[in-house]
Every structure is written in structure tokens, then in C-alpha cells.
Amino acid sequence: MGKPASSLALEPAGPLWAGTVSRLRAAGCVFAEDEAELLFATAQDAGELNAMIERRAGGLPIEHVVGWAAFAGLRVAVDAGVFVPRRRTEFLVEQAVGLAGPGALCVDLCCGSGAAGAVLLSAVPGAEVYASDIEPAAVRCARRNIEPRGGRVFEGDLFAPLPAGLRGRVEVLVANVPYVPTEDIGLLPPEAREHEPLVALDGGSDGLDVLRRVAAEAAGWLAPGGRLLVETSEQQAARAVEAVAGHGLAPRVTTSEELYATVVVATRP
């Protein structure tokens, strides 16, 4: 991570910098220096910096503290209470961008902050992007990231709020569904458990409940040759493939060792 220009006009060498890093380390922040850079770049004065350090030390995700996340080359707004886009999800979006030709009609389901939709709009010339999420806070945040770039965001459950005219026309359908098994929610870091909505994390008993619901409807929304892309875990991949194949889609699995990411890409014949 390069050092951003500091709003405080302070070099990362003085006592305020050292004190910030020390306080973050004491709070258990593994990447204290990187986080200090973000805080220095965002805070307008020492008082605001101190308040931000307090919020971070109290367990608030750094993205919620500064109000944004770096994702696939973009600065994506991330409001408090909204799921923070993970770096591994950049692999999912990279696959989607690679499959989307100029002017592609794309849908971002379970859009959260709208990071995937924002990248598609930025990286694919003329892309037409529609997004949806059931969480009102996520929808408000996604609208800030997607609509200024020309996309549209809807509030509701999966496909339900999308315009009916999209049925049978979607070329790229990105669904970053929740896939943590319910019994594993308690094993997540406190940042996720306490500050992100449960609906964005809990995938049901085996983590695949929402994926199955998406797979059951996807073929009706995809254009012939259109693709559904979903992120899952390595351990869940075989069952995820079975779920989408059972609804008439032809799946394949692609992975990134670097990002520890697993994506199922399923094509409508």
C-alpha cells in the first residue's frame, strides 16, 4: 500500500505518528502502520484523528472508521453497518469483468456496498448495471457507489425488486452471496460479527442456502450464454457446483491461490 498524502500534513515519523501506530498495535491491529496511513490521510485535524483511533481501538472495522475501502482499484464508500468488501472478492469481480463485453447487461445481487457493480461500470465500456440488496443500509451505500456511475440499485430480496424486463437478458450475473455456515458465525472475527449485518454473513446450515435460491432462479434471468458467478469456499465448491448444475446451468470452478478465492462460474446453455 502506497503512502497517501496526509490531510494532517504530517510526516509518518513524528510523535503523533508513532503514538498512533502504538495505540493501534495495542488494540490488536495487525497492520497498524497501514491503518495509521489511512487515518492520517482521512482525518482533518488531530482531534478527528484521536476520535478515529478510539473508534478503531474499540473494534470498528477500519473501513467503517474512514468511510471507504480500496477495492479493485477503486475507492468504494463503506458506511457503518454495511458489509466490507473483501480483497478475495476482487477475484470474483475480475472474472466478471473478463466475461463482460462492451455494453454488457450485468446484475450485482447481494450487492452490499455495491463494490462489484461499481467496478463493472468502471471497467466495462458501456456496461448496464443493476444491483439489489435486502439490507436498507447497504442499498443506501450502494447507491452512492453505483448510481453516479450510471447504474441502478434496488432494495429487496435477491431478484424480486429487479425490473421484470431484465428477465432472459442478463449477460453477467454476479452474486456475492453469504456463505458462512450458521454454526461458524461465532468463529468470525469480532469486526465482522459485531459490525456487519448477519444477513450478509449467514449462509444457513451448510452455508449454501442463499446460493441455492439464486441458482433456482438464475436461468430465468440469464440470456442464452449468460453467466452466473458466485464466490464460495474451497470446501463448499463441489456442493455449490451440484446446486447450480441442478438448475440447468453448466458450472466450472476457478480459483486464486494468491487471494485464497474460489468462484463458481455457471453458464446458461
Rank of each mutant, 00 (worst) to 15 (best):
L10T: 00
A96T: 05
A115L: 09
E191S: 14
A243F: 12
A5M: 06
W68D: 10
P15F: 00
V210H: 07
A80I: 13
D209N: 04
G47K: 08
A266K: 14
A192T: 08
R212V: 14
G156A: 04
K3T: 02
L74K: 10
G101W: 02
P61F: 07
E135D: 15
V244Q: 13
D34G: 15
E11M: 00
T254C: 14
V180Q: 12
G14R: 02
V263D: 03
R212F: 06
V139P: 01
A219L: 14
L222A: 09
L39K: 06
A240E: 05
Q235G: 11
T42A: 11
D79T: 12
V244P: 11
C106T: 07
E258W: 09
E231D: 10
G203R: 06
A26G: 03
A223I: 09
E94I: 01
F159N: 12
A238M: 06
L105Q: 05
G28K: 12
R149F: 05
S113K: 05
R87I: 04
G226L: 09
P181W: 13
R86F: 12
S22C: 03
A175L: 13
C111D: 02
W221H: 09
R56H: 09
T89D: 14
E196M: 12
R193V: 04
A240M: 07
T232A: 07
A127G: 06
V66T: 11
V263K: 01
A137P: 00
A138T: 00
L249S: 12
E128D: 12
T262K: 09
E63L: 07
V84N: 13
L162I: 08
G101L: 00
P15S: 10
A175F: 14
P148Y: 07
V30G: 04
D209Y: 03
G67D: 07
G248S: 13
R169E: 02
R55S: 12
E183Y: 05
L229I: 10
E11H: 03
P148E: 05
L211N: 14
V265E: 14
F83K: 11
P125N: 01
L105T: 03
L208P: 03
G73R: 06
G168V: 13
G114S: 07
L198H: 06
I134F: 05
G73S: 12
N176F: 01
V82W: 06
L38F: 02
M1A: 12
S22Q: 15
G58H: 08
L109A: 08
R167K: 14
F83S: 08
V153Y: 11
G248R: 15
R227M: 02
M1R: 05
L121V: 05
A104I: 02
W17G: 01
